[in-house]
């Protein structure tokens, strides 16, 4: 479902003496449907970079990034947009929303974007919010004023609203209490059971051991270290 072939990534900082910083080289991996793979490595090793290369907000310098058959490294913007709508979900660490939009709508939006019936979408959003213990009295408010943990849970609910065949999870259990952590882990288990291919970053070792089938150390892709 997700396959990287010999991907490299470097940043060129034109305004800082045109410094070229190679951050990734020869990255290859393959994630099958129903499989969850954890990216590991020290902070700064390039876990998030690799994830963003898969999602398409970082341009790969070379190599292929195949998600559901589409090469994200070469695709047109509208192909990537369609991929993100239908196929590839991303739960980031930060919630980014239009101010004033009610939480329930924020969560239902990925479903509405694929043309799901409005009531069905709202019902599913409500069920997810309830499961993640967001009090119902907050659903009609914008999540911009919520606490960090609440925003994280809204973000997760939004990420799991649509049954994406491929998912990227950036520390989904960070800043959650034990009970909500369990809920998120069971959401991940369910996504795997329905055949989603998942790439995740988990600093929480217990969570990683519980849901991940294998680990890939991104330090292996760091230029210079491997050489």
């Amino acid at each position: 479902m997700i396959e990287l072939k010999d991907v490299s990534k470097s940043f060129t900082l034109h305004n800082q003496g045109s410094a070229v910083i190679p951050v990734m080289e020869g990255a290859s991996l393959k994630v099958a449907p129903g499989e969850c793979v954890a990216l590991t490595g020290a902070s700064g090793a390039g876990k998030s970079t690799l994830m963003r290369v898969i999602y398409g907000n970082y341009l790969a310098a070379s190599g292929q990034v195949l998600v559901g058959g589409l090469d994200v490294a070469q695709a047109e913007p509208r192909e990537i947009l369609a991929l993100r709508r239908e196929t590839l979900g991303y739960v980031s660490q930060f919630l980014r929303v239009v101010p004033r939009v009610p939480t329930l709508e924020v969560v239902a939006e990925p479903l509405l974007a694929i043309g799901c019936d409005r009531q069905v979408a709202l019902d599913k959003a409500a069920a997810l919010l309830a499961r993640l213990n967001i009090p119902e009295r907050l659903w009609s408010l914008s999540p911009t004023t919520f606490s960090g943990g609440e925003q994280q849970r809204v973000n997760i609910a939004r990420g799991f609203a649509h049954d994406y065949p491929a998912m990227l999870l950036d520390e989904p259990t960070a800043s959650l209490d034990a009970q909500n952590r369990e809920t998120v882990l069971s959401l991940i288990e369910e996504a795997k059971a329905r055949g989603a291919a998942i790439v995740g970053i988990f600093h929480d070792i217990g969570a990683r051991n519980q849901v991940c089938d294998r680990e890939i150390n991104v330090s292996d892709f760091t230029p210079g270290v491997a050489a």
Binding site: F11, L13, H14, N15, R52, N57, Y58, L59, P77, L81
Partner: peptide
């Protein structure tokens, strides 16, 4: 030109980098 988040998160051109930063 490109996807909005790609251009803003990983700008390639010197001017875009200046703009974003």
């Amino acid at each position: 030109a490109g996807l909005t988040d790609q251009v803003l998160d990983d700008p390639q051109h010197a001017y875009t980098q200046l703009l974003v930063s």
